[in-house]
């Protein structure tokens, strides 16, 4: 399933974006909020994020090795992710990307010496990628609901103890340059503003917040997130 979302549907408001940079509501200095406003406005008319997911109706869950098999490919998802996927009947494998444009603008600004502008583009790019993943997840939830199925939260290689190198297994399901994304040997997606992962589907799966208390990654963006 292929979906695309104009940037304008993905960017949260100025206060929320300043929040991503660390500022409590209303405390960001004016040049920062002004720049967020200017660049968000500029990007609104300038691009589209893309997301794709493929649903596999059957997955094999092995409780002993805590692995998940999709068409013979075994994902070593590790305990935290496994515990959330263990009741899944099927799974959606997905990738989302903000595309090249926003990253290019960021790098160009940095090269020209305007680090603040480069940084704001960078943060906007991350939010666009995450926003696209949120929308894609919502589309999947709605699609699953029509057949009486529920979905789990989304999980990405590199988070919750799942090795980032497993992106190679994930990408083995997608044709080359799928969604305009390529994967390097070191499991880095290009464009950088991209997210990949898996979502469990089934009658008995539950959508639960991330189990951050079981994870020792204090820096994670999903830490403490409500949804």
């Amino acid at each position: 399933m292929r979906v695309s979302y104009p940037y304008k549907d993905l960017l949260p408001g100025i206060d929320a974006l300043a929040g991503v940079m660390g500022y409590k509501s209303g405390t960001a200095p004016e040049p920062v909020t002004d720049l967020i406003a200017e660049l968000s406005e500029e990007l609104l008319t300038n691009g589209e994020a893309r997301a794709e997911y493929t649903i596999f109706n059957h997955v094999r869950l092995d409780k002993v090795s805590r692995t998940l098999g999709v068409e013979g490919v075994v994902f070593n998802v590790k305990p935290i992710v496994f515990s959330q996927l263990k009741h899944a009947e099927g799974a959606a494998l997905f990738i989302c990307t903000a595309g090249q444009e926003v990253g290019m603008r960021s790098r160009r600004s940095m090269r020209e010496g305007d680090l603040l502008r480069g940084y704001v583009y960078d943060v906007l790019g991350s939010e666009i990628a995450e926003g696209a993943a949120d929308k894609m997840q919502e589309a999947l939830r709605a699609a699953a609901a029509t057949t009486g199925m529920s979905i789990t939260n989304r999980f990405s290689p590199g988070y919750c103890g799942w090795d980032v190198a497993e992106q190679h297994k994930l990408f083995s399901f997608f044709p080359d340059n799928y969604c305009g994304i390529t994967l390097t040997d070191s499991a880095l997606m290009n464009p950088v503003k991209s997210v990949s992962g898996i979502i469990g589907v089934g009658r008995n799966v539950k959508y639960e917040p991330y189990r951050c208390r079981q994870c020792d990654d204090k820096n994670c963006i999903y830490r403490g997130r409500k949804t």
Binding site: M21, G22, Y23, A28, P29, P31, V32, L35, L115, L116, Y119, V120
Partner: peptide, 8 residues
Amino acid sequence: IFVPQMLM
């Protein structure tokens, strides 16, 4: 302070 002020 956060990254933007460092850059300013």
